[in-house]
Structure formats: structure tokens, C-alpha cells
Amino acid sequence: MPRTTKPSRRRERLLALLLLALVLFSPPLVMIADRPLGGGLSALPLYLLLAWALVIGLAAWLLEGGPREEDQG
């Protein structure tokens, strides 16, 4: 993230990430992920762990990428 990014932009991005996480963790998508893998077990836990890791990764990128003083806004 460039240094010039305004704090409000970051808040907006975080809000979007929050909504993304909510959608990823909630039924319609969860129901899609609920199907057997090759071995016979459901892919649901695997999907959840991957989605979770993605959300955490994005959060870390958004929060640690920017300059420190952005937190003040």
C-alpha cells in the first residue's frame, strides 16, 4: 500500500474484508463447500481453514502494510 493512502481508505478496505469474511464463513458458501472430497470426508473443514487463512493473510497485509500513523484517523 502506498504511503499516501488515506486512513479512510484503509477503514473502507477493512470493512470490505470484514464483509468478505462474513460471506465466506456463512451458509450459502458453506453449503457449497459441503461436498465429499476424494477420500470420502467432507471438504467443509478444509474450505473453512483455507478461507480463514486467506482472510487472516489479507488482514495482515492491510494492517501491516500501511504507515503507523494511519491508526489515528
Binding site: V30, G40, S42, L44
Partner: peptide, 24 residues
């Protein structure tokens, strides 16, 4: 685990109490 019929459905959404609603 996949070979055991008892475990096959252990992690389906159906195993969750209340299904999709219970999930939310």
C-alpha cells in the same frame, strides 16, 4: 478415516445441530 463408513459423514454440514441455521 475415509474408509470407515462411520466417519465418512462426520464433517458434513448435516452433522451440525440445526444445519445452516444453526451454523449462522
Amino acid at each position: 478415516a475415509g474408509a470407515s463408513p462411520a466417519l465418512r459423514g462426520a464433517f458434513d454440514l448435516a452433522a451440525v445441530e440445526g444445519g445452516a441455521l444453526g451454523w449462522s
